[in-house]
Design a protein around this nucleic acid. Structure first.
Length: 338
DNA sequence: AAAGTACTCAACCGCTCTGAA
DNA sequence: CTTCAGAGCGGTTGAGTACTT
């Protein structure tokens, strides 16, 4: 997708340098795109010093810079504004805040950024995007058997997706294999079938999860004329039956309690409507919730924190029983901007 | 050492919102 | 009420860099 017309090179990387070239062949009023040069930054800073961070379009109209007002504003907000934590990785606490606020606000990056001192919406957006890509790759790829606990090079780089897989694999010990034949023909008439490949995104919780082992089965309500079933159960999407509760990659309140053991696997009670859940209740067995989410500590000991080194060490704490603390009120004052 | 892959991040675009005329 | 311009925001791109194989 050539979004920059006229062959203008958008940027030459973090080295800065002489990107751009002013849009090629135009007059002095030609718009310049691409990386900013130090002289341009100086002009922009001078404008902000005299006029404040506003009136961006006048920068071009006055002939100060061959840049659009949008471009000037973006440069100021993302790079020139004081007190920015540029080039500084997100701390565990910042990651936790982003995760919580994203769950609360959605992709309102500018709003989320107001809760993070020195971070811009672009920072938050990039952070989240990277995270999403990593999870997507993780979930798209095969989930291999546990690999050796080889230590990474440990240069502070985020672990590869395969290292996350190894974390998942540590749960295998508690996984009960499904016996499809034994699942069919239960007294309530619910049927099972192999589910389609699972997207690793939980709509109800707006977050990713992962699971291990064979694909989950889908619980199908009984057909007409069979054992009792409610209309709601008929209309509700069939719940998935997991070999084990899917493994959440971000903290979901009530996880994994919402996964109930139906004897041959786990179903997501949170994703089912109440009536469908009522239908299934008689099938629920009182199996102790030993499932892995809270067994992570042991797993961590085994792998010496390798897989989640890039995740906030306490990011799952709130999933246990603590409500997330109310975020501080956003208070970006004018002084902060200047 | 080289090649491949993943990650980071600056900067663009299109859209929406808002306020003035 | 409508139009228009500026500002702001979210999504996306892609070059450069870091890491892995």
């Amino acid at each position: 997708m050539a979004r920059v017309p006229g062959g203008v090179r958008r940027r030459s990387g973090r080295r800065g340098g002489a990107g751009g070239g002013g849009g090629g062949g135009g007059g002095a009023e030609a718009l310049r795109k691409g990386p900013w040069m130090a002289e341009e930054d100086e002009v922009l800073l001078e404008h902000v010093r005299t006029h404040g961070p506003m009136d961006w379009s006048s920068i071009r109209s006055k002939g100060l810079l061959p840049r659009t007002g949008k471009s000037c504003r973006l440069r100021w907000v993302n790079k020139l504004r004081p007190n920015l934590k540029s080039g500084c990785k997100f701390t565990a606490e910042e990651e936790r805040v982003v995760i919580e606020l994203q769950a609360q606000f959605g992709n309102k990056w500018a709003r989320i950024a107001t809760y993070l001192q020195g971070r811009t919406d672009n920072d938050v957006k990039n952070f989240w995007s990277t995270r999403q890509k990593r999870f997507a790759r993780l979930l798209r790829g095969p989930l291999p058997a546990a690999r050796s606990n080889k230590q990474s090079s440990g240069k502070g780089k985020a672990p590869s997706s395969s290292s996350l897989d190894s974390k998942t694999a540590t749960f295998h010990q508690s996984s009960a294999s499904l016996d499809q034949a034994s699942l069919e023909g239960n007294s309530l008439g619910w049927q099972y079938r192999e589910a389609a490949p699972l997207m690793g995104y939980d709509q109800a919780c707006s977050g990713f999860f992962a699971f291990e082992g064979p694909l989950p089965l889908q619980l199908l309500p009984p057909a007409d004329g069979e054992a009792s079933s409610s209309n709601a159960a008929q209309s509700a999407p069939p719940p998935l039956l997991f070999d084990q509760p899917p493994y959440p990659l971000i903290n979901f309140p009530g996880w994994p309690e919402r996964y109930v053991d139906v004897g041959h696997g786990f179903v997501d009670a949170g994703a089912m409507d109440g009536l469908a859940y009522q239908e299934l209740l008689p099938m629920v067995q009182s199996v102790p919730m030993i499932m892995p989410f809270f067994g992570m500590e042991c797993a961590h000991d085994d792998v010496k924190h390798e897989p989640f080194d890039d995740l906030p060490p306490n990011m799952f704490d709130d999933a246990v029983d603590q409500p997330p603390p109310p975020p501080p009120p956003p208070s970006p004052s004018r002084d902060d901007l200047l």
